[in-house]
Design a protein around this nucleic acid. Structure first.
Lengths: 208, 208
DNA sequence: GACCCCTTGTTATTAATTTGACATATTTTT
DNA sequence: AAAAATATGTCAAATTAATAACAAGGGGTC
């Protein structure tokens, strides 16, 4: 499974394929052509075929794609072949919201704990998840084989967390703080910059 | 202010410029060259100059850009020249998290109310914001000149909300539900598909 | 089983985006 | 005041991405 030179644009479309295929699977649709998929997903059929072909020929001429197979294959490409232990740092509203999203867990992202520095929150148990003190961060991460951290702190705390992560075995950060984190090369970061997103919406509202 | 043919790629970079310029402004940095900006923001200087030039010549040869002016200009482009009344539909954890983000309000996005269908939540007041019943949605939106709706419902409720929005004067939706909404042409939608984002992270974690 | 139709995988073409180059204008230094 | 350094705006080149075209392989039908 060593795909290389796959462009970021392609990668970012994969989850969307995955999402739509799941929906079809749930609706008992067995096969789908790039043309039909194009109609519901909004990409050109050509783009769909080229995207998928980056990873191998999943389809069959004259038939199309087997929905279940394709769903599984894309899942594999996205790394959904095993579970990942995750923790949340910052147990405020956003952290709690993410903790409550069962869909992440269903995909294999298993929440093991939440961390905070606020004494009022530390010690609580929210939906069977303990909120621990940041003092125990490193030891917990190491002992529980945590691989992904969701950073839900405010802007100022985020880089500190990233620095502490850098000294552990965690190699993936999902960052919700409005700041671009400095991390070692082998740590991947995916940002959810809400403000950036809202301002884009604002731009298009104005332009309309 | 009728810029046209500006590519989406450029638009999506504007909030990042805005964010970094604000930081510089707070640090009393008066001027900045595309070269210096390039170093902190990570885009090439050439790209920065070309991006900005889409909207007019904000810089000066031999000097660079005035930080405050550029910040203001980009704010204008993004529509940050006035306040917008917004409401949140879906007052769960995520909705409450967004309600608590003061930075949105500071930029001009004024939260007027939250809506829900859960009787246990309706009637509450969270941080001075009332949670209202969806029965009163249309009348509230019309009477309070609401322009933007943040959809924080689950997947199944989101399209219903979008359909009801379509019959009002609201022309902008910030959608957090994992579904691509069908809306009239004159309604702009900005999606925050968290699962898509998480799966992208998962891909890169696997590839590393 | 033969024919026709459908649909992929892939190559070619076109479009979009990024990068590089440079003439020109302004600031800073001497 | 002149010269050197700086840095924009813009044009050209290179790279990347999207679209279109099509040959060839299977499936469906009669």
């Amino acid at each position: 499974m060593k795909e290389k030179n796959i462009s970021l644009a392609v990668i970012r479309r994969l989850p969307k394929y995955h999402r739509y295929l799941k929906e079809m699977l749930d609706n008992d649709i067995k096969r789908i052509s790039s043309k039909e998929l194009s109609k519901v997903i909004g990409f050109t059929a050509s783009k769909i075929r080229q995207d998928l072909n980056n990873f191998g020929g999943f389809g069959q001429q004259g038939y199309g794609y087997n929905v279940e197979d394709l769903y599984e294959e894309i899942g594999k490409i996205l790394g959904l072949t095993r579970d990942y232990n995750v923790i949340i740092v910052g147990a405020g509203n956003l952290g709690q919201a993410l903790a409550n999203y069962s869909s992440f867990g269903r995909l294999g992202f298993k929440l093991k704990a939440m961390f905070d520095i606020n004494p009022k929150i530390v010690g609580l148990t929210i939906k069977e998840i303990q909120v621990l003190d940041m003092d125990t961060f490193e030891s917990f991460v190491n002992e529980n084989n945590v691989e992904i951290v969701y950073i839900c702190t405010n802007r100022d705390g985020a880089q500190d967390v990233a620095d502490r992560i850098a000294k552990t075995n965690v190699k993936a950060i999902w960052n919700f703080a409005p700041v671009d984190l400095k991390v070692p090369e082998d740590v991947v970061v995916e940002n959810v910059h809400l403000i950036d997103n809202l301002l884009t919406l604002s731009y298009f509202l104005k332009e309309n």
